[in-house]
């Protein structure tokens, strides 16, 4: 039987030192045994490395920033789709997900572009500011956290959870405070940059373990692979990691997917304490940049997800190889200025 050929568009081509997941998703798609693929890259800036990696990306189009609004985005997709006839789209940036969730029906009905995304409710509920409540609802340990709006509220929360504690921005940034003075100074810095509220979170001591997986929207975990980072960059990104054999973590994951009816890809970030307790730190509703490790470990989750969304019957993965590692490397491409000119002026390459 001949394999189908899909045209799949992918964002997050910024394979830089703090990489977007785009290239990893593309490599997984290229490795697919069940379908052939034409990759359409979607870039925001002219220097995203993926634009110039022609072995992976067949054609790239510039797309508007999320802040330009949904109407502009739809207009751009109408144009791109008229040329490319996109079957499937992988948004890979946190900041763009809000728009894509809102546009899911429209892109599907008007342009025939499929996406696999959580619902707006699932997306909001797992947001950092709501995560503690989320944990309570779904019976998962989440470090105690509270939104605060002024430094006057710090002593009250600190009396409850003690120092050290973590001060977190609404969207980004987290700093550990060991004293009230530090907490206050972190609050000021973070609120100046990310606005209010600021989140004060209980500090959980342990090692970080992550899970990359996919949910089918009906409670079934189609795939899940746990990983521990072996080395992190100064920006806190994984440099190397290794797959784990951790039944308890897998159990927590499948329960979470079952309880939340999670739809689409996810990355769960946990802190594992010395007492083997798992605290959920964050849920990312997309594939992480290290998702190619799941392919290496025997679960091509990206391929499985596409097949699932294309209406194929997909059996959940039952195994993965434990002790598989990824080690990230950087690589200097040589690029002609003509290519930079083209993506900069025409918006296509």
């Amino acid at each position: 039987m001949s394999k189908p050929k899909y045209t799949i568009a992918v964002t997050g081509l910024n394979a830089i030192d703090s990489p977007g997941p785009g290239l990893a998703v593309i490599r997984a798609l290229k490795d697919s045994k069940s379908f052939d693929v034409r990759i359409i890259g979607l870039s925001y800036e002219a220097l995203e490395p993926g634009i110039y990696m022609h072995d992976y990306v067949d054609k790239t189009y510039q797309v508007p920033y999320p802040s330009a609004g949904q109407e502009v985005l739809v207009e751009r997709y109408k144009y791109i789709n008229a040329i490319e006839n996109i079957d499937f789209l992988f948004p890979n940036f946190d900041a763009e997900l809000f728009n894509y969730i809102a546009l899911k029906e429209r892109l599907l009905n008007d342009l025939g572009i499929k996406m696999s995304l959580p619902t707006q409710e699932q997306f909001e509920a797992r947001h950092k500011v709501n995560l503690y409540e989320y944990g309570k609802t779904h019976e998962i340990k989440v470090p105690f956290s509270q939104m605060i709006f002024s430094t006057a509220e710090i002593p009250g929360v600190a009396a409850n959870i003690g120092y050290p504690l973590v001060i977190k921005g609404k969207f980004y940034d987290a700093k550990i405070a060991h004293t009230a003075e530090q907490a206050q100074s972190h609050f000021n810095k973070i609120s100046a940059e990310w606005g209010l509220p600021v989140i004060v979170q209980e500090f959980v001591h342990g090692s970080e373990v992550n899970v990359c997986g996919i949910g089918d929207g009906e409670g079934v975990t189609l795939g899940a692979v746990p990983m521990r980072k072996l080395y992190i960059t100064d920006k806190g990104k994984a440099w190397a990691g290794i797959t784990l054999d951790d039944e308890k973590l897998m159990e927590i994951t499948t329960d979470l997917v079952k309880n939340t009816m999670w739809n689409g890809p996810f990355e769960l970030e946990f802190m594992k304490t010395d007492k083997d307790e798992y605290y959920l730190i964050e849920i990312n509703p997309r594939f992480p940049a290290w998702c190619y490790l799941t392919v290496g470990a025997g679960q091509n989750q990206v391929e499985a997800l596409v097949n699932h969304e294309m209406g194929m019957k997909v059996e959940p993965f039952e195994n993965y190889e434990v002790g598989k590692m990824f080690i990230r490397y950087s690589h200097d491409m040589i690029v002609d200025i003509k290519e930079f000119e083209q993506i900069s002026t025409v918006g296509e390459l």
Binding site: L47, Q62, P64, Y65, A68, R76
Partner: peptide, 15 residues
């Protein structure tokens, strides 16, 4: 200038 990494011209149409 092009290399500033700011809003590209494919991004601001509605304005």
């Amino acid at each position: 200038p092009l290399n500033s990494g700011l809003m590209n011209k494919f991004g601001t149409r509605t304005e």
